[in-house]
Design a protein around this nucleic acid. Structure first.
Lengths: 371, 371
DNA sequence: GTGAAAGCGCTAACAG
DNA sequence: CTGTTAGCGCTTTCAC
């Protein structure tokens, strides 16, 4: 078939082949019922035999919506995993992977699910999705480019600077994910971070009757982290725990840093519970606790936030607050469509519920006899 | 900001505001160096103050490439996981997840990685990616829609029927993923299924000196499965094993079906090795083997194909042939760009290497003292 | 029902 | 360096 691209056929070609005007061709495509059957058949035959595919650009230009929504993600780190091949055999590398040298596929990149959710929702509404990395050298160009060819844009928090966002927002509706930006005038879809943290912390404090706490926070500029720490403080207040009695350290949401922090923390004094602002940190804490010969949950209970896969497979499995990532993506597309239907009205913020998953690192009950 | 969409500004608006012609505005955008600095500044100021974002549609129409490549995936199954919430607390559902009730996030959907790879490559080349599900009710419409607004299209095998594919291929280059379609005239990017299976099977037969084999194949219409079975037969021939001595069953690439088949197989006679055409099947076989009280790898060794995450976390971890999914996506974008640069020439097929990952279910050696 | 004609917003010669 | 002028391929009144 590589006998192609010799100037793709246009409405004119189809019209000529079918012996009608271009207007009729257009009608056959957009409102088939408005055309007499015989005429319609001839046009459709011409379309088939010419291999005609309408130009989306021309369509979009000529009016109406493009039927495309955009999604800007923070950009993918190019993880070129350089595993050492141990044996080679017939051109196929053979690796002894019993120690699981294999990378965590870098798949845990949490926005995979967001992407899939958005795609699903777009698909169900007959829309196409345009995805791009909102970062990188040509950031501005890409963002403008995408903004120029979609009906609406969903942007993951902190992937595009505010001024750029405000610029494109003058052309199309923009919805920010994972950060309530109503103050800036943007619609947003986010997760109920505060309630989630409050609930899991309440479980630790009141449910398990633990008052010796440590809190591993994230980077100070993270809106997510900020909300979670608010939820944490609410839980303290609810239970009448003195905030000053809680040792708090600030990590970077990373596992390595959390491990270091946890070691220092445990060195000083072992808390009965370590509440973490995200899962990666919690896994780092788990590393440190185990390394010191302490048992989880018997000696220390640990909780995370996010619900990443690694937490399901850790030893012990990690209690966490699960965020509905897929739903985030879906809600984003819905928000865009809503805004397109109702251009006016104040910015709206959708809050999605989270879910506490109690696993072994901080079980429903500390009573061994209870389930 | 919701003060928007009052007919977005156009080049004309910018030109008027800056006191220049539309051509100059266009130049400032496309080749800034061709415009005197003072003029350029005025235009850029106008762009900023008007909130001007060029229309991608108009750009695409006016000539040149759109700068967008399309990716058609098989479509996402909408997995609405209905987990039973055990406790409710302050609006946040609390779930006892100690038995890992949580879904495998459905994340293992293998094309996540393909998608990310494609995105990465596109991003690095300054292209945007348009993603859509190649299935579903409005399949034809969506496919045409996407095809009408991209420069080239990558399609995952079996997501779009050939006739539709051939139709759009007359307009833009199409590359098929995971299936060598040169015969149909399409460029393709696929994985070396045969060599992978041949290598892993050779390891079992010659490396481990096992000759009592069973083979769990996939659905008959799968091109992947077909190639893998060819590789398997080559391995048999290489080692001088009589194919007739191998019991072969056909599954559906699913875990459940494989489990059933394995039970029947084991009932009749326990083979020393079960080679499976994909990981899901291998996991099903593992289920059955363990259920019957047999040990892996001591009594039965099992191998899979794909390299899904679940295989890393199974008990025991699964030996498999890993496919470079991310690379598939990247290669697809490269293939499209290549084809755009060289519209003529015969269809080309890119073959990506696979990698055998030896894990506990079929270790490098059966000698317990080794390694 | 169907055709004629006027753009949609931009790029790319081609003149100045 | 900058302005003029054609279209790019399609949708959409408005007549017939």
């Amino acid at each position: 078939m590589s006998t192609q691209r010799t100037a793709p056929p246009t409405v004119y070609d189809v019209a000529a082949a079918a012996g009608v005007s271009i207007a009729t061709v257009s009608r056959v495509l957009r409102s088939p019922d408005a055309v007499r059957e015989g005429t319609r058949d001839r046009v459709q035959a011409a379309i088939r035999s010419l291999g005609y595919v309408p130009s989306g650009n021309a369509r979009g230009l000529a009016g109406r919506r493009t039927g495309v929504v955009g999604l800007l993600l923070p950009g993918f780190d190019v993880v070129t995993d350089e595993r050492p091949g141990l044996v080679t055999d017939g051109g196929v590398r053979v690796v002894d992977d019993r120690r699981h040298v294999t990378q965590p596929t870098a798949s845990a990149l949490y926005f995979d699910e967001v992407l899939r959710g958005a795609e699903t929702e777009a698909w169900q509404r007959g829309l196409a999705l345009m995805v791009a990395a909102g970062r990188g050298p040509s950031r501005d160009v890409i963002v403008n480019d995408v903004a120029g060819r979609v009906d609406g844009l969903a942007v993951l928090a902190q992937t595009v600077p505010d001024d750029l966002l405000e610029h494109v927002a003058r052309r199309i509706p923009v919805v920010v994910l994972a950060d309530d930006r109503r103050s800036r005038g943007f619609d947003s879809v986010s997760v109920d971070n505060a309630a989630g943290m409050r609930t899991v912390a309440a479980h630790v404090i009141a449910g398990l009757d633990i008052r010796s706490l440590a809190y591993v926070a994230g980077p100070v500029d993270s809106p997510d982290d900020h909300e979670r720490s608010i939820g944490f403080r609410q839980a303290l207040a609810d239970a009448g725990v003195d905030p000053a009695s809680v040792r708090t350290v600030h990590g970077d949401f990373g596992r390595v840093r959390a491990r270091e922090l946890a070691h220092a923390l445990l060195e000083e004094r072992v808390p009965r519970a370590v509440i973490c602002s995200n899962d990666q940190s919690a896994l780092g804490v788990l590393d440190a606790v185990v390394a010191r010969g302490l048992r989880v949950p018997e000696d220390v209970v640990v909780t995370g936030f996010d619900g990443i896969d690694a937490g399901r497979f850790s030893t012990p499995p990690l209690t966490t607050v699960h965020q509905p990532m897929g739903e985030l993506g879906r809600a984003a597309v819905r928000a865009i469509v809503d805004r397109l239907d109702h251009p006016d009205g104040p910015p709206r913020a959708v809050r999605l519920p989270v879910e506490v998953l109690l696993r072994e690192s901080c079980p429903p009950s500390l009573d061994p006899s209870a389930d």
